[in-house]
Structure formats: C-alpha cells, structure tokens
C-alpha cells in the first residue's frame, strides 16, 4: 500500500509548527501505524545522510513521536490522525492501529494532541505532566505498607470491583483531552476518582480526593466539561462518561459537607 502523509513538524515548544508532506510506499497491510512511522523515519534518515539532498530540501530529520509498549497499555502513543485521537476505529491506541484500516493511496494527516495543558515538546510529542500533577493532588489512598489488614478482610461485591476495574483501565494517554473542544480532563479525573470511590478502601478520603483533583485540574488550564461525550467516543479503553456523573456526585456531596 502507498500513502501520502501530512505530518506536523515543530522544532520545539517555542517555534511555530507546520505540516510537511511525505510519501511512503510498499507498506504491508499488516503493518501497524507506528511501524509505518518507523519506516518513514528510516526513509527520512537516509535522506539526511545525503548532504546534496539535504541542501535542496528542508531538512528536519526523523519525526519525533512518543511510543513505548506498542501493545495499547502504556498510554505513551498520542497521535491525532485524520482528526481523531488515535485515528479511526473505536477502542484502539495508535500503536494498535493497522494500515489495513486505511485505503491504499489515502492521504493521512498526523498531528500532536492539541491542548493548552499539553504543550508540544517536538513534532508529535507533547508534555502531559499535568496529568501526573492531578494525580499527585489526590489520586491515591493514604496508607502505610506496614499497617494493612488481610486482603480478604475487606469483601468487595464483584459488581463494584468490576466497575472499579472498568474505570481503572484508563491508560492516561490524554485522548479525552485531545478530543474535547474545551480541552477538558474530566474523563481522566473521573476515571481515577470513580475507581477509588467505588471501593470501600477509597471511601475515607473520597471527599478530599474529589475536591483536590478537580481544583488541580482547573488550576492547570484544562477546560470545562460541556457533556459532548466526545471523550468517551474517542477513549481507547472505552471509559464511560457515567464516571463523570459519579465524579460530579462525589464533588457536590463533598462541597455540601464543607
């Protein structure tokens, strides 16, 4: 298969970015999207090796993009492909996207996540440190390793444990923010708040957690939630917006208690 790629190139956070057009050829349909990007990069590096070619064109080296596990769980990959975070198709990360999902000869646009809270580091790489900061504000249960009861001392109904697990499968990739017209991080925050709030272990700090995480989210420049539900539609792990409803309940009941 052959493709035309329009790829966002940006030297660093300060400089302005632009699209560049590249062509890749003879891509097998079982190739993953990131393997296709690897092939593009090999091609660009070989072009760079030839000083004559570099002098002629605009030399910007291989395209930088975040990636690591390549099996859909680490949450590092973060490409905005043809107007969708992680590209077309539901419930996949970019690394699980395969070229068989595209048409031969198609032009594919590749951009970084775009959000005020996620500044571009280079090309398609953004800084998602804001997510870490939100979790540092309260996304934990305060315990000491030496003083915990036997694991089976706290029975948890299977249904609750399953729901908690649904929310806990968030991989922190940021697709929810990238898909939201307001750049809201509500789904991300809601997933963590919900997964802990659903379990008896999470209850003692539930009020403090919900308030602290929401306050940190607002402080870091994420937008407000206007219930478009784009986040759920684009979430590679299918995290439900019902978690946002639960976050709102937790948050309001915490505020009432103030």
């Amino acid at each position: 298969m052959n493709f035309t790629l329009k790829v966002w190139r940006q030297k660093n956070a300060k400089e302005k970015g632009r699209f560049e057009t590249y062509h890749v050829k003879d891509i097998a349909e079982d190739t993953s999207f990131l393997e296709m990007m690897d092939i593009l990069n090999e091609q660009l590096i070989h072009e760079d090796m030839d000083p004559v070619a570099v002098n002629k064109g605009c030399h910007s080296g291989p395209v930088s993009f975040d990636h690591d596990c390549r099996e859909g769980i680490c949450g590092a990959c973060s490409l905005y492909i043809n107007g969708h975070p992680h590209g077309p198709g539901a419930l996949v990360t970019t690394c699980q996207l395969f070229m068989r999902n595209f048409k031969d000869g198609e032009t594919i646009t590749v951009e970084p996540w775009r959000s005020a809270a996620f500044p571009v580091v280079k090309d398609l790489v953004v800084n998602r440190n804001a997510f870490d900061q939100i979790l540092q504000a309260g996304g934990f249960i305060s315990i000491n390793p030496g003083a915990v009861p036997d694991a089976n001392a706290i029975p948890v109904p299977k249904e609750k444990a399953d729901k908690s697990m649904d929310a806990a499968s968030c991989i922190g990739c940021g697709a929810c923010v990238a898909s939201c017209k307001n750049g809201s991080a509500m789904l991300f925050v809601a997933a963590r708040v919900s997964s802990l709030a659903l379990l008896p272990q999470g209850r003692p700090e539930a009020c403090r957690r919900a308030k602290a995480m929401v306050a940190k989210m607002d402080e870091l420049g994420f937008g407000a939630c206007t219930n478009t539900q784009a986040c759920e539609a684009e979430c590679p792990k299918g995290i439900s917006v019902s978690n946002i409803a639960r976050l709102n309940r937790e948050f309001l009941s915490a505020k009432f208690k103030d």
């Binding site: 908690s164 997964s195 272990q201 999470g202």
Partner: peptide, 10 residues
Amino acid sequence: DLCVAQGIPF
C-alpha cells in the same frame, strides 16, 4: 494485602 488496601481492583 497492601495492594488491596491501595484500592487495586483485583
């Protein structure tokens, strides 16, 4: 024991 106390949804 510790992981359950941390809220890991086993």
